[in-house]
């Protein structure tokens, strides 16, 4: 079943139609969400009542547009803050881990590697509650024994960041490690040979080589954090990030302003996706 092996016309047409149908299935919900952002109706459903940009710019209830909706705008800022912190932490840890697992030899390395992969197979909800329970236990203990009130250990933005960092760093580690594995060690030796120090060699040769993977991992972790729901739901404090705020609205009954937000998210994600794809193409190989 490859082009070099002849097949009947019927087979080829059926196969191609299946793939087209698959892409329709992929696209349908996204197209619908995007389209109804422009429907001049109070509900995101048919019939179509004409096009409007009110759900973006409208300034009056009930058609309060996205850019006038303060709670939503604030939740976007919260999400931005969380995603930035998570990304920085994850990239730092991922880079350390990549060097640890690709360069060092030590007893128990394989066990540690498997443990590092664990967050991939722990359901997000469980990861969230376990961190919630643990941090609350610590906070309670400190309050009982020392009278300290460690508020950040109760559901809060800090806890959301820690919870997301717990599993996003594993994904970043896999991306950065894969790139480091392709690195030819003789490049670092060549740098030493040309007079660089060990740190100088890593800084001038190895890290630039890892740059495409670091940017790619950064984009992935930013988006995963921005869009995370399951872990965040368990750890969120008073400042709701965007996904939680949208979820609450959805339960109250959706208005097309949610479609407007979704459309903006799609556009932003697509831009980031394109950047990361371009990054992938440009990365030089050894």
């Amino acid at each position: 079943m490859i082009p070099s092996i002849p097949h009947s016309r019927l087979f080829r047409t059926t196969y191609a139609s299946y793939v087209v149908l698959f892409f329709l299935y992929l696209a349908a919900p996204l197209i619908v969400v995007g389209t109804f952002a422009f429907n001049d109706s109070l509900f995101p459903s048919l019939p179509w009542k004409g096009a409007t940009l009110d759900w973006f710019f409208g300034s009056e209830q009930p058609k309060l547009g996205l850019f006038q909706d303060d709670p939503i705008l604030k939740s976007i800022l919260v999400s931005f803050f969380i995603a930035s912190c998570t990304t920085v932490l994850s990239l730092l840890l991922a880079t350390c881990n990549a060097f640890l697992f690709e360069r060092e030899q030590f007893p128990g390395k394989n066990l540690l590697y498997i443990l590092m992969l664990m967050p991939l197979v722990i359901p997000g909800v469980i990861l969230g509650v376990s961190i919630l329970v643990f941090s609350s236990s610590i906070a309670n203990w400190f309050e009982m024994n020392f009278g300290w009130e460690l508020d950040f250990l109760y559901p809060s933005t800090t806890l959301v960041i820690l919870g997301q960092f717990a599993f996003i760093s594993t994904i970043c580690t896999l991306i950065v490690s894969a790139r480091l594995r392709k690195f030819d060690l003789s490049l670092e030796e060549a740098a030493l040979n040309l007079g660089a120090t060990k740190w100088g060699a890593i800084w001038t040769i190895t890290l630039p080589f890892l740059k495409p993977a670091l940017i790619g991992a950064g984009i992935v972790s930013f988006l995963m954090s921005f869009e995370n729901f399951n872990t965040t739901l368990m750890l969120v404090g008073s400042d709701a990030p965007l996904t939680i705020a949208m979820f609450d609205r959805l339960r109250e009954g959706a208005t097309p302003v949610l479609n407007a937000i979704s459309l903006m998210l799609m556009v932003a994600s697509s831009i980031l996706a394109i950047i990361s794809l371009l990054m992938d193409k440009k990365s030089p190989t050894t």
């Binding site: 030796e189 060549a190 040769i205």
Partner: peptide, 9 residues
């Protein structure tokens, strides 16, 4: 070096 080790970056 055997594979030259020219810095690709």
């Amino acid at each position: 070096f055997q594979h030259l080790a020219l810095f690709p970056t």
